[in-house]
Nucleic acid binder design. Structure first.
Lengths: 220, 220
DNA sequence: AGTCTAGTTGACCGGTCGGTAAACTGGAAG
DNA sequence: CTTCCAGTTTACCGACCGGTCAACTAGACT
């Protein structure tokens, strides 16, 4: 009831192995054999639990999204502070995650959802729609965060939270593409403050740039 | 015997075939056999002119960038009008191109450079650095356009054209990722105006949104 | 006991991939 | 004529891919 631990082994191991491998590399460059090897499972078992590699990845994305919500979206976007501080917390969380992967694996992976779209978006409708679902969910978090800012008077009352959330997501995807080009987590911190301008919380003074604020951008 | 040299060069045909195929699909999903078939050339010839598939793609990117500069960047960013109008022309040009490919092939390809980064960025340093070089060149066009706006007084004098150009590029990449998720060129038009906000030319009134200006004429 | 069944195993398949090797072609030069 | 060589052609390779299959195992239910 509370746990289905009588069968967690192979299926869960496959999901975790697929996540680790596909996240740091890519869907196409990670084969089922490698996934199985890392999971400590034979290939036949993979196809006992999943009907195809795509099916495995679909389930992996669900688990990934759950963890992403729990570890990044909710803590940063529903945490304390004003909109501006929440955006900073969000950027910091993304940076921390990408930097950690980069430190451990040598790769800066970028956005796993965006990566999958680019790889498979033009020929696998199933994967594309699944990724779209998850990105819509991410945008939903942005939207709620923005709406709260509107309700609190931090954003103009006429702000279109839905449209602005989509722009937020677009810029974030682009930032992660740029970071992947550079293979450098610092790019996330350098471009992250652009979100302030896009969302309109760069400060009461000017619309073009935010002043150098303390040592917040510093990295260990 | 006489028409065998009708095609100017097998090399050129291979480059064009690679571009057509890889652009609408992807690097990984287009094989050398298919490229050769489209180019009307046997595989041995491919490896006479290029040392590897990656080498072919590298050369293809150079030609693609030249055409992109000539057909999109220069006409839109160095054309008449203020910064804001140039941004609109740029977005229109990108949209026109993506929509045309989408109409003809059924695929919305997104940014070929961004696609390649996501596909190969984490395991092929050569491709990654080549893409970075080309994207830097694109950002250079943005930067010159912005600098001109600063010189003309359309942008604040303290504007950092280099940093802003990078943000412009990041948002554009993100917009194309979003359009690829949606597989809908309209997403480019919907998100394009966010560039106004990011760059700070959304108008003298407010920082959040630009007024709905209908009838964005089909200008390319 | 016997049966049922979810799960596991390892051998195997057909196909595709990037890339190779060697023979061949035709025109230019000595 | 012979030599030379950029370019072409054809057949082929080994590796790897996602996926299949029938046999097997161990626990649960009757």
């Amino acid at each position: 009831m509370d746990t289905q631990k009588n069968q967690p082994d192979s299926r869960t191991a496959l999901l975790q192995a697929a996540r680790d491998l596909i996240f740091t590399r890519s869907f196409e460059h990670v084969g089922t054999a490698e996934i199985c090897e890392r999971a400590g499972v034979r290939k036949g078992s993979l196809y006992h639990f999943f009907s195809s590699k795509e099916d495995l990845v679909l389930a992996m994305l669900d688990a990934l999204m759950d963890d992403f919500e729990r570890a990044v979206l909710v803590p940063s976007l529903e945490g304390p502070g004003c909109i501006r501080e929440r955006i900073d917390a969000f950027v910091q969380a993304i940076h921390g995650f990408e930097a950690a992967v980069h430190r451990e694996s040598g790769y800066l992976p970028g956005c796993p959802f965006g990566n999958l779209i680019v790889e498979a978006g033009t020929y696998s409708p199933g994967l594309r729609q699944a990724v779209k679902r998850h990105l819509d969910r991410v945008a939903g978090h942005f939207q709620r965060c923005l709406q709260e800012g509107i309700d609190r008077g931090e954003l103009p009352a006429h702000t279109d939270a839905l449209a602005l959330a989509e722009r937020w997501l677009a810029l974030m995807e682009g930032i992660l593409v740029m970071a992947k080009v550079d293979q450098d987590p610092a790019t996330i911190l350098r471009l992250g403050p652009a979100l302030h301008v896009l969302i309109g919380v760069s400060g009461p003074h000017t619309t073009s740039e935010d002043p150098p604020e303390g040592a917040a951008g510093g990295n260990a």
